Computed example of a mutant assay.
Amino acid sequence: MQGAVPKRTTSADGTPIGWRQLGTGPAIVIAHGAMSTGEQWLPVAEILAEHNTVMLVDRRGRGLSGDAPDYDLSTELADLDAVLAVAGPGATVIGHSYGAIIAAAAAAAGADISALVLYEPPLPVVDLIAANACTSCARAVEAGEHERALSIMLADIVHMDESDVGDLRRSPMWERMVDLVPTLPRELGVINGLAGDLDRFTTIQQRTLLLLGEVTAQYQRDATRFLVERLPAATRLEIPEQAHFAHVAVPGTVADAVRSFLGGA
């Protein structure tokens, strides 16, 4: 991460929360999804850093951040609040997947955020997110079978094509993702626990860009439609030929979408 400066702050429960910071200008805070760290968004951040201060957060339990035994969505919200206190008032927050749930929940709770970019938050708006697969994944983690748990996650929850999973297994990303598997069951539990609490997300007032891959899973499309239909200042943008990881596959396209959205304020 050439040019990225590691920084840290402390969350409400005393857990250290770290990020890598690039560029100068209005602040953009990026909250990554499950099975990754902030590093996954570096190609997008390097483009955005031409005109912005970009803060690539490592969410608790990975990378530069610490962890604690107690965990729920409120701990993640406190973590993001701690970073936003450093970023200053009116930051933009980009959230991907589980990170998009955190970003949306923070905005709904009144965090000082000027704009949101939400890339496929997996809200359980039609049904629980692959409940049987979540149970199988948790059991695999309990058994120490982390590669099997990751395979279940990608195939049965993210709905990644078998060939794409095979490509990922042969890439350097696979080992890094396997290392993060122990954080997965608690996050899946939070997602499905939101099934009766979706109205909290309809109070978001900030300008919101909802990114959606053209060939992404149906439950992601359902969640995005739910927000588009209920948020007063939401814009939906579909990314051609992409699914859940366009920021990795076509980072320039994602960065351009964010810059266009912010430039149109």
Rank of each mutant, 00 (worst) to 15 (best):
V44A: 03
A45N: 03
E50D: 12
E50M: 02
E50L: 14
H51A: 14
N52W: 13
T53G: 05
L56S: 01
D58P: 04
R59F: 05
R62H: 07
R62T: 08
G63Y: 03
S65D: 07
G66A: 12
D67I: 06
S74K: 08
L77S: 02
A78Y: 08
V83S: 00
A85K: 07
A85E: 07
V86T: 13
G88D: 10
G88C: 13
P89A: 12
P89G: 14
A91Q: 02
I94A: 09
H96Q: 09
S97V: 10
S97M: 12
S97I: 13
S97E: 00
Y98A: 07
G99T: 01
A100N: 05
A104D: 03
A105K: 05
A109G: 13
I113Y: 06
A115W: 03
L116Y: 07
P121C: 14
P121R: 15
P124R: 04
V125G: 07
V126T: 15
L128T: 09
L128D: 15
I129G: 08
I129H: 06
A133N: 03
S136N: 13
S136P: 04
C137A: 11
A138C: 02
A138D: 11
R139T: 13
A140I: 11
A140R: 10
V141C: 01
G144D: 00
E145H: 02
H146C: 03
H146R: 06
E147D: 14
A149I: 08
L150G: 07
I152Q: 04
A155E: 13
A155F: 12
D156W: 06
D156S: 08
I157G: 05
I157T: 00
V158Q: 10
H159G: 05
E162H: 13
